[in-house]
Every structure is written in C-alpha cells, then in structure tokens.
Design a binder for these strands. Structure first.
Lengths: 249, 249
DNA sequence: CGCGCTGTTGAAACTTGTCAAAGTTTGTGG
DNA sequence: CCACAAACTTTGACAAGTTTCAACAGCGCG
C-alpha cells in the first residue's frame, strides 16, 4: 500500500481505510467506479491525516499539491482580505473535497480549518490527473465534482446577493439538513459545528443578526435551538420563508 | 476540417478561425499547447456560433453538451429563483469560457446572454475530455481554468459578503480594468456593456445604489462616467477605497 | 471554580432599498 | 430623417433592515 512515509510500517487501520474499503463510496471520488477501478484509486490515496479541532489543513499562500477528501469530521474554508476582513466560503463534511481552489495557481487561495477532530485522505493532484487519463469514469466524475462546486458557489452568490437575513439562515439550515440526510443522519436534528460568527461570515451577516434570526425562528416555532443544537420543526415553513419574501436591505 | 453540419461547404472564414489561427491563444483553452497540439484542438472546435445582442447562448434547464469559448463580444450569466429574483453570476469577455456549470448535472444551471453581438466557439465536452486524456497540457490547463472559476467565485462571495456598496463598485471597475488590460485595451477607459441593473444584480445592489455610487466616484474625481462610458482617473484611489473602508450595511 | 469564549438581547446609527419623478439615450416606424 | 416610445439613468425623500455598541448570561475548558 503506497504511503508517502515509506519507512513507516503499514498499520491495519490504514489498510482498512483505502477507498475500496471506505464506506464513503457513494459520496466521494470513487463514486460510480468499478471494483477494479477503485483498487487503482487506492494506490493514489497516499496519505491520511488527522486534524484536531482548530487545526489548519492548509493555509492561503502555501503550495498546492494534493486535494483532500474529508473522511470524518467537519471543515470550513475562508478567504482573507488585506484589511483583515474574512469570508467563510464553505463548510465541508464527510465525502466532500477540499483544495480545488489550489489547482489554478498551484498555491492555495484559501484556508481550510477543522471545526472538529477530523480525518482526511490526501490525493496528490498529479496522480489524480494521471489516473484520470486512464479511467474515463474517474475523469468525468472529477469534472462533475468541480462543476458542482461552481454551481454551489453560484447558489451562495444568489443567497448573498438577493436574500435577506432570515432567508439566508433558512437556506443555510435547509442545506445542512439535506447534506446530513444524504449521509444517513436525521434531516431535522443536528449539532452545528461552527460558531454564530462563522455562520454569519458565510452568510454575509454579523453574528448578532444570525443570533436574532435563530431566536425569531424559535419564536415562530420553525426550529428549536439551544446553542449549537438545532431541531427543525417545520421544514416546509423554512422553505416558504426562503422563497416567498421579497427585497433586501 | 470537421464540422457538425457535414454537408455545408467550409468557408475560408471558418478555416481561419480555427484555434491554430486564432489570436486568443494566450487567453483561451489552447494556452501553453504546442503547435501540433493546437492542431488537434482545432478538430475539436466543431462549431462557431454568432449571437445578436440579447440572444441566449443557453438557458437554465437545457441539456448540456458543449462548453463555449468567447471569440468576440460580451456575455452575462445569471441564475433565477422560483420567486423571480435574479442574480448575475458573471460577465464573460473574449477568451473566457462559458458553460462549465453544465458539466455537473449535464443540464445548464444558469442562463448565458450576449450583451453585444458576439461570437463563440462550441467545444463538445466529451471531445474535450477525450483529447484531455491524450494531451496532458490540455488536461491540466482545463483543470486550472475550472479551478480559476472557483477562485473567482470566492472573490465574488467576499465582495458580496463583506463589502459595502462603493467598495463593491470599485472592485468591479478594477476587475474590468484588469481584464481589458489583459486583452490589450486601455486599463483606464472602456464602455460598459451592461446596464446599471445588471451591475447591481452582480454586486448585490439595487440599480439606484449603483447609480449613486457612480455619481459619488465622479464627484470625488475617481472616475469620469457618462452613461456606459467610463474613464478611470485614479486607480490607486479606487484600490484604497476598496481596501481601507470598514463595516457594511 | 472561575475566566474566557460564545451567544443573546436592546437601542441607536447607518447603509441601502423603495418609491417617485424627471431627464437622457436608444431604437423603431413612419 | 424625424418623431415618438421604450428603456435606461439620475436624483430626492423616506422607510426598512442590518450593523454597531453595549451589557449581560451561559457554557466549557483548564
């Protein structure tokens, strides 16, 4: 089993977490590949890495050479402006890829931080390009993943450009709910891994505005929220809120 | 010279606009390819298409099969919400690619509209993937282009999430200036192809706010603007405005 | 067990949106 | 080529939404 640190003896745990034995098949890069193809992909995932909460996976300005698949845990990515302003550009959970921003210049353009203890698989990008040339399915799937990221970003732009505070938070909660559902968790109950400030940064709002919107949703019986624990009581209600309001400040 | 309409005789004009004879080498997909490689790419650019101002290149919901390179002219892309709200997600000029959003689901997720009479080269995506498997340089360059789009989107998210109206407009004008410069035009003087409303939609502002910001920049001697004609008088001034203000409403 | 980080809430200030009116340019048809 | 209509832009006054500032409460980590 190839591993960057060649001298290190290979533990059973590492073998078991190769793509072919990973339960993220249907979410992650191996999606749609045949058994044989996944085994080829195994050779490519050179390295796993564990991160503690708060640790950086990479920082803006660092050289890029791998993309990362989240194996467990939760991440945020953010960009900084010279004057110190920060924008969270995304939250990544199990099976999602990190580092696509670095392909462009071979320098990472954002920071990736673990919001809880996490584990990632590093995929050296040149190897991925190599294997993509052999396995059409992998090539096509990778292109779809990049494109999906672009479409997702357009959704965030729509949110930031046209929605008011409560609509943004509703959209955010519904998006999380959907992604947790896709991973086999409850659509209606989850723990937020990020602070109000990080939610606010992602949604283009101040933390106080986020907090007030949470309180308002609770008053209206849409959700039950206590700190980071959220229970969605009325999904259709949130959807309606997101779509039928007008204008923005 | 392969062409979708096989029965159509090939005009000299069409031959002349193959990648190998196109003056967009250094901006467009053939960037960095050898002469031989560009000739292979020629075979791939199956079709040119002319569009009148206001015409749609594609619409959200239509099946995707090609990406497009802008040969001349100017485009916008936008997304619509069910309730009618619209967000312009980008403006594309010469040498830039359109349609990357469609790869993900094989359905276009946004609309692309010509803002002036324009011409595009259609590149069937499956052919591009095929040729990418042969030509590493092309594969890598295409990945960089997609990644660059992701990075650009992060920049827009930063703009929408953290900047106030005048900062957004300053950033917008500086970005246009830079892109015109890269195409050999003046960095300081250009015609806007889009309306105040379209600028506003892109920047997450109402058209009146955009108009007021233009007026304010003019009062302050940063630009001279008359309708769609813009002359930037003080580029450092705009940069400073973009970076050193704080807070947002 | 307390200190710091995080979250909540209130009141005032500020930015941007909304509505309205008038001016300007562009495009069309006679 | 002119005249008129439609589309776009500018500007003002007011309203609404979000931020700012401030105080306090709660949770969790050391």
């Amino acid at each position: 089993m190839p591993n960057r640190k060649i001298a290190t003896p290979i533990s059973l745990v590492e073998v078991k977490t190769a793509c072919s034995n990973c339960n993220l098949h249907e979410l992650c890069l191996p999606m749609g590949l045949s058994h044989d193809e996944v085994e080829k992909l195994d050779e490519l995932v050179s390295n796993r890495r564990r991160l503690k909460r708060g640790e950086h996976l990479y920082r803006a300005g660092e050289p890029f050479d791998s993309i990362f698949a989240v194996r467990s845990g939760f991440f945020k990515t953010d960009v900084l402006l010279e004057d110190g302003r920060e924008q969270v550009t995304g939250f990544q959970m199990t099976g999602e890829l990190l580092g696509l921003d670095g392909i462009s210049t071979e320098i990472h353009s954002c920071n990736a931080v673990a919001l809880e203890d996490s584990e990632v698989c590093a995929i050296p990008f040149s190897h991925l390009e190599g294997l993509s040339r052999e396995i059409h399915t992998l090539q096509h799937h990778f292109h779809k993943v990049m494109s999906r990221e672009i479409v997702r970003d357009h959704g965030v732009m729509m949110l930031l450009g046209t929605m008011r505070a409560e609509e943004r938070l509703a959209a955010f909660l519904l998006n999380l709910s959907q992604r947790f559902t896709a991973r086999g968790y409850s659509p209606a109950e989850f723990y937020l891994r990020m602070t109000r400030e990080e939610i606010g940064s992602y949604l283009g709002l101040k933390l106080e505005t986020v907090s007030r919107a949470f309180s308002r949703f609770q008053e209206e019986g849409l959700i039950a929220v206590q700190q980071k624990h959220v229970r969605i009581l009325n999904i259709p209600g949130l959807k309606q809120l997101m779509n039928h309001q007008q204008g923005r400040g």
